[in-house]
Design a protein around this nucleic acid. Sequence first.
DNA 1: TTGTAGGCGTTATCAG
DNA 2: CTGATAACGCCTACAA
Lengths: 338, 338
Amino acid sequence: MGKVGMKQLAEMIGMSASTVSRAFRSPHLVHPKTRERILQVARETEYIYDAAAGDFSRKISTVIGVLVPTTKRSLFSESLLAIQDKTQEKNFSVIIGNTKYDSAVEAHLLKQFQGRRVAGMILTGFGLGHEKLVEDIIKSGIPCVVIWEKLDSDVISYVGFDNYKAAYSITKYLISLRHRRIGLIIGPYSKMGRTRKRLEGYRAALTDHGIAVDMSLVVEKDLDLLEGKQGMIRLLGLEQPPTAVFAASDTLAIGALAGAREMGCRVPDDVSLVGFDNIEFAAYCEPPLTTIRIPAYQMGQLAVRTLLEIIEKGTPETHQYCLETDLIIRDSCAEFKS
Amino acid sequence: MGKVGMKQLAEMIGMSASTVSRAFRSPHLVHPKTRERILQVARETEYIYDAAAGDFSRKISTVIGVLVPTTKRSLFSESLLAIQDKTQEKNFSVIIGNTKYDSAVEAHLLKQFQGRRVAGMILTGFGLGHEKLVEDIIKSGIPCVVIWEKLDSDVISYVGFDNYKAAYSITKYLISLRHRRIGLIIGPYSKMGRTRKRLEGYRAALTDHGIAVDMSLVVEKDLDLLEGKQGMIRLLGLEQPPTAVFAASDTLAIGALAGAREMGCRVPDDVSLVGFDNIEFAAYCEPPLTTIRIPAYQMGQLAVRTLLEIIEKGTPETHQYCLETDLIIRDSCAEFKS
DNA sequence: TTGTAGGCGTTATCAG
DNA sequence: CTGATAACGCCTACAA
């Protein structure tokens, strides 16, 4: 059974390849009867449309590239899922790359995507410091939309949220509970713009409420459970431990919870704790975690819509959406007394 | 700066396109000096190799398709991560699809991958009942390797583990702790082969130890936290509740933990609990969960290696690897007394 | 070691 | 509405 292509298909029916092609891509241009027959025979012969060749011929592909720091973070996966859902509807394919927060890998994958002539890209958490790189790609004719970060550039499209504001608000919540010594366990802000915004939000909330920022209460940790645990242990071991802790990701927070247990410290009785992200597990730990909800799915969805729009129009334009986050109050905080 | 292609590049240097092509793909066939110069100019002009065109021309692509039920399950992501790591080394791209356990979507994506002329596919948890589909694709000339399941077919390559055996062993562990009424909270085994194997392992362990299987202790639930919680509540509400529960995924188990708390039931004092998967959170819940470790990363890694090998050789061959799982004992089980 | 020519499967363009 | 033809960017014989 030698692979059938359009040509073979056309021959079988006694028709030109062009007509067959049209039957698939512009059905309205071909006589219903003819089309019917074509589709019919296509089914019988199990003809498979060669998308690669089509893309190549049309000089615009139906593949979009998605860059994610790591699919292991469940919220990124959530965005990714949304991207795929939307994308499948339109019969686009998604090629994916994990950067692992490493900018060399980032650069490599970007090149790879360009080489594949993707129709567009969605860049996750591609924040501050990389504007130039993204701008160049856009200039080269490949539309990009950045998600997970509100950017300062006015030429790059994004669908993000305000990390600064969100961190500010949850810190403020802790302050409203009368806490004054508030610890922070946070990802590597020195190398990640997005994370840095959270740090800034935390600091601003403190100073705005007349609390001096004490950097000995800030621990910079990699983003995983163990590090969260260690961070908490360190904070709790301080001469004057904090009465509340803001872990700048739920993963860190859940690790912190374990750390508190290990130190014989009850949450929220002895120390209050908040997270950030509202991953699913946050509601199921003990105690359920107060945190910030991030509209991950929504971001992915909107990003695809935006990207596809730009691709279709064919004109470079920029759209920017800053979505809202919510404070989700559960049971991991108590009012500070003394 | 009109895009430079190979032709332009060649012209600039006063050389034919073929030589340029060779400089990239078969460096040894071109004079070092010439190659040097080509690479040099390529860099200067920021030439980007058109992988899409190359693939098309060569009639075999450097893209592999990966199908996953959902990237949200962290262990699938782990395999996915491994796949990408390995794949990047070889300069292959990964196109991805989430099936959401839906076989219509599965079929659609499979077609999409075929249409893109992928060089090969890695199918995750594409178990029992779909052998025919996979075999057809292999016959059509696209190598496939299935991961996450040990298959019975001897023509399909896989890198999996034995769900039956793993479930058997953890059930047996519970039995060794003198439990006799052992509940099971499990995913939709009626539609998922992989899950069904776990059910069978559980049943076999029971009967092999002279315990009658009581289907009222088996609850079939979708795979998420809430369902796990509900499952536990239901089991604990029984006239004669189980003294131990096997949740056939850690997600379910963590939900179950919350369910137990809600019923005022302590783990492991009042009821023992085990999970399956050993996701990262398992070690950080309260109490830390006894579970089965799945070599997710390793599976992804080995799958790529296997796939690439088959692709390179160009001859259809089948490799099958069944990896080991481990029982990870933590603090969620106690011996049954009375 | 390098150049020439033809081809990969589809689509766009231009006639008919 | 349908057909013929060139073209997309690169690769692979084959020839030099």
